[in-house]
């Protein structure tokens, strides 16, 4: 008998490619492989042996997947960019303050130091903040695979519960979105049992205004209500082309009472609808009380 083998995860072969192309080739050639991003979801699942991959393809040694920038009027974030780096990006905060507001509620500093935007997106937990934010921003998801690169609108990215609409050999390489106009306001509000826990319900709210102070455009997306982020178009319509006064906010928030909500051990559908109404109202009030965003220059 040799020394004790102190390991939690199941046996797998480990691969750490240095380029996206190598990672894609490995994904296409290996059976039962999992891509490892920041590890804040996959590693617990490996430690508990919920997943039993034959191969783990680690994306952490691919520097090209970690970047934050601006191109052709869009903000672009590499899939392996750490949540902490996104939270601290002045460029993102200036043009999309919603990102930092949401990230401050994602896990804890220790998990955000490792966790990535692409990992959170592909794990696609129904209560996760980042997929809801990307849905609210109408983001585009950039994907690389053996047949080349393709773009998926965030609305089409979730296939079903915790499952993105990409092949097992495809890798999210980046996300991009057009920031809302200068002066827009935003908030991310959620209710969780303890700070840092997965939310029962969370709301991303965006508001853009006309010169007369009426709402030009509204974005309301909820996490934790359905199996994937849910856009409340009824609330958006109620807000648009009118003053965002207390009556307008109440009327918009109340439309969330009609959403179809899921049931699990944490909350009933009726409680989730109650939270959806209350948190949408709070998100709108919080957005209106804050400063407007800067402009993309």
């Amino acid at each position: 008998m040799g020394p004790p083998r102190v390991v939690k995860p199941p046996p797998f072969r480990y691969h750490d490619p240095g380029t996206l192309e190598e990672a894609v080739a490995l994904g296409a050639s290996l059976d039962n492989a999992k891509f490892l991003a920041g590890g804040q979801s996959l590693m617990p699942m490996l430690n508990m042996r919920y997943v039993l991959p034959d191969h783990v393809i680690d994306l952490n040694r691919i520097p090209d997947l970690s970047h934050i920038g601006e191109a052709a009027g869009r903000l672009v974030i590499g899939a392996m960019t750490r949540q902490r780096d996104i939270e601290r990006s002045d460029l993102l905060h200036r043009h999309c303050p919603l990102m930092r507001k949401a990230l401050m509620q994602v896990g804890h500093p220790q998990t955000r130091n490792r966790g990535t935007i692409g990992g959170s997106l592909c794990h696609l937990d129904p209560a996760a903040e980042l997929p809801a934010v990307l849905a609210a921003l109408d983001a585009t998801i950039h994907v690389a695979g053996p047949d080349g690169a393709r773009d998926i609108p965030m609305t089409g990215f979730p296939a079903f519960y915790m499952t993105p609409a990409i092949g097992h050999d495809e890798i999210v390489s980046a996300v991009s979105f057009t920031p809302w106009p200068a002066g827009h306001k935003s908030a991310f509000v959620e209710f969780a049992r303890r700070p840092g826990d997965f939310a029962i319900v969370g709301v991303a709210a965006l508001l853009d205004f006309g010169t007369d102070g009426t709402v030009n455009r509204a974005g309301i997306v909820l996490a934790g209500v359905g199996p994937a982020p849910v856009r409340c178009t009824a609330a958006e319509e109620r807000l648009t082309r009118r003053m965002p006064d207390p009556d307008g906010i109440r009327s918009a928030a109340l439309t969330c009472a009609d959403l179809e909500a899921m049931e699990d051990v944490h909350a009933s559908p009726s409680y989730r609808r109650h939270l959806a109404v209350e948190l949408t109202s709070r998100a709108l009030r919080s957005a209106l009380a804050g400063p407007g965003a800067g402009s993309l220059v």
Binding site: K8, G39, P44, N47, D58, P109, Q110, T111, N113
Partner: peptide, 19 residues
């Protein structure tokens, strides 16, 4: 299990040693 990895706090149970 939090340790500092290149100065940044991380859960050492959620990292592989090889990483």
């Amino acid at each position: 299990c939090t340790v500092l990895v290149n100065g940044h706090s991380a859960r050492s149970c959620l990292m592989l040693a090889v990483q």
